[in-house]
Amino acid sequence: MIDRTEGTAAVRADGLDVRRGGKPVLRGLRLEIPAGRVCALVGPNGGGKTTFLETAAGLLRPDRGTVRLLGEDPGSDAGRTRLAFVGQDKPLYPRLTVAETLRMGRDLNPGWRPDLAARMLDERISERARVGSLSGGQRTRVALALALGKAADVLLLDEPLADLDPLSRHHVTSVLMSDAAERGTSIVMSSHVLAELEGMADEVLLLDHGRVRMSGPADEATADHRLLTGPAAEDAAPDLPGVVETRTRGRQTTLLVRGDGTVPGGPWQSEEPSLETLLMSYLRSPEAPAWIARPLDDTAPTATHQEAAA
């Protein structure tokens, strides 16, 4: 079978404007998340994570611009069958049992895979229990089971780990990771706690004030920056291009600098920042230009054009 996802982004947003209650939430969002990757969608509350995921899931209509999932309109029949979405509040019908909820998934999705859904559950979640009687974490597992059983190509998960205990979190992440590995599923999952996603995400997308602040492979992001530490003396800070943030604490100054190139000598020590340090620096420095590993070229053909050319 030909992999139709090849060469097509899992999610591509182009000039995406989305308003909510009259207020702009996404402002001209342009980004591309490659297919087959696990993308950590991070950013402060109100930064646009949920709105972005709901727009990508076809639940919100863009006011301007487009969003495409594997080249498809997420609101179309073709797009809808290829995506699975779990909302932040993990909505389920409280009066249905777990078994009935999964049967609903089977009834509503032609490609339903009960084996995939079953991976999310464990013996502590009774099939006959009503969803309304489950704990928050168990409900999340059922919601994720419903999404996974759909056997979609793109999983859009809004804060999937937020109300899970550490053990469940481990289980859920490993199920998601193995799905990504086995079926090549593209996963976009949001969190405002980066630590939740660090280590499992190979792609990072930082949204703040409805704009992209960072987008690209997580390892490239850290490799493309340097954390410089040196004396706090006023004139000591080196005049470098691409300084994202300068912080002085006590007698020590820390600089986050873009680029892996020149390192000033003398007292300055250089190291690769952790992903969390990097994201925090970008969030604290709204003036710093966004870091985008693969800038979208205005003249680049869109996914559908590429398909047509192929």
Binding site: A78, D107, P110
Partner: peptide, 27 residues
């Protein structure tokens, strides 16, 4: 390039017509 997605969409609507009804009845 369009063919596979149209096919899958078509089979989707056929496959889930009775499924949709079952779901609504259950609800």
């Amino acid at each position: 390039s369009l063919a596979p997605s149209t096919d899958s969409a078509k089979s989707a609507s056929v496959a889930s017509r009775s499924g949709l009804l079952r779901t609504v009845v259950r609800r």
